[in-house]
Measured scan of single mutants.
Amino acid sequence: SIVTKIISIVQERQNMDDGAPVKTRDIADAAGLSIYQVRLYLEQLHDVGVLEKVNAGKGVPGLWRLL
């Protein structure tokens, strides 16, 4: 499923980069989806406690990390 793919992308990127959070844009590119589509999935995963959003604010790139 797309959700499983997104989780594995975040996991893979974090492992490659010493646990650093992953940008929404990088996840979207790797999943082959638009940034808006991916954001909806990321928000859902956040709501159920799978991911945390590391930063927030208007015009700030979203950074995500697995919990």
Rank of each mutant, 00 (worst) to 15 (best):
S1I: 10
S1T: 10
S1D: 13
S1N: 09
I2L: 09
I2E: 03
I2N: 04
I2G: 02
V3C: 14
V3F: 15
V3S: 07
T4F: 12
T4I: 13
T4Y: 13
T4R: 14
K5W: 09
K5Y: 08
I6S: 00
I6G: 00
I6Y: 00
I6R: 00
I7Y: 05
I7G: 00
I7W: 04
I7Q: 02
S8K: 11
S8Y: 09
S8L: 12
S8H: 11
I9G: 01
I9S: 04
I9H: 03
I9K: 02
I9Q: 00
I9F: 14
V10P: 00
Q11A: 13
E12M: 12
E12H: 10
R13T: 03
R13A: 07
R13I: 12
R13Y: 12
R13N: 02
Q14R: 02
Q14K: 03
Q14C: 05
Q14S: 09
N15V: 09
N15L: 14
N15R: 11
N15C: 15
N15A: 14
N15K: 11
M16E: 06
M16W: 07
M16I: 09
M16G: 08
M16H: 10
D17S: 15
D17R: 14
D17H: 15
D17T: 15
D17I: 08
D17L: 15
D18Y: 13
D18M: 10
D18G: 14
D18A: 11
D18R: 11
G19N: 08
G19E: 04
G19F: 05
A20Q: 10
A20Y: 10
A20P: 04
A20H: 11
P21N: 03
P21F: 08
P21Q: 03
P21D: 02
V22K: 02
V22S: 05
V22I: 06
V22P: 02
K23S: 15
K23L: 06
K23C: 10
K23M: 08
T24Y: 01
T24D: 12
T24N: 01
T24F: 01
T24P: 05
R25S: 13
R25I: 09
D26I: 06
D26N: 03
D26E: 07
I27S: 01
I27G: 01
I27W: 02
A28R: 02
A28D: 05
A28N: 00
A28K: 02
A28F: 02
D29E: 12
D29L: 11
D29Q: 13
A30L: 08
A30E: 08
A30F: 04
A30T: 05
A30Y: 05
A30P: 01
A30R: 07
A30M: 08
A30Q: 07
A30S: 07
A31Q: 01
A31G: 02
A31P: 01
A31M: 14
A31F: 03
G32L: 03
G32T: 02
G32K: 06
L33N: 03
S34G: 07
S34N: 09
I35A: 05
I35Q: 05
I35C: 08
I35F: 07
Y36F: 12
Y36L: 10
Y36G: 11
Y36M: 11
Y36D: 13
Q37E: 13
Q37N: 06
Q37V: 13
V38K: 00
V38F: 01
V38C: 14
V38Q: 00
V38D: 00
R39K: 13
R39P: 00
L40C: 14
L40F: 13
Y41I: 14
Y41W: 08
L42Q: 00
L42F: 01
E43K: 08
E43A: 06
E43L: 06
E43T: 06
Q44R: 14
Q44K: 14
Q44S: 10
Q44E: 10
Q44V: 13
Q44D: 08
L45H: 03
L45Q: 00
L45V: 02
H46I: 07
H46V: 15
H46L: 11
H46Q: 11
H46F: 09
D47R: 15
D47G: 10
V48G: 07
V48C: 15
V48K: 13
V48L: 14
V48I: 15
V48R: 13
V48T: 09
G49V: 04
G49F: 03
G49Q: 04
G49E: 02
V50N: 00
V50A: 04
V50G: 00
V50Y: 05
V50S: 02
L51Q: 00
L51H: 00
L51M: 11
L51R: 00
L51G: 01
E52G: 07
E52F: 03
K53I: 05
K53P: 06
K53A: 05
K53T: 04
V54W: 03
V54E: 02
V54R: 01
V54H: 03
V54P: 01
N55G: 10
N55L: 07
N55F: 12
A56S: 10
A56Q: 10
A56K: 09
A56R: 09
G57P: 07
G57M: 05
K58G: 09
K58I: 09
K58L: 10
K58Y: 06
G59R: 06
G59E: 06
G59H: 06
G59I: 03
G59A: 06
G59T: 07
V60W: 15
P61Q: 14
P61H: 14
P61A: 14
G62L: 15
G62E: 15
G62W: 10
L63R: 11
L63S: 11
L63V: 04
W64E: 02
W64V: 02
W64T: 01
W64A: 02
W64D: 02
W64P: 15
R65A: 08
R65H: 05
R65Y: 13
L66V: 11
L66S: 04
L66I: 13
L66H: 04
L67T: 13
L67R: 12
L67E: 05
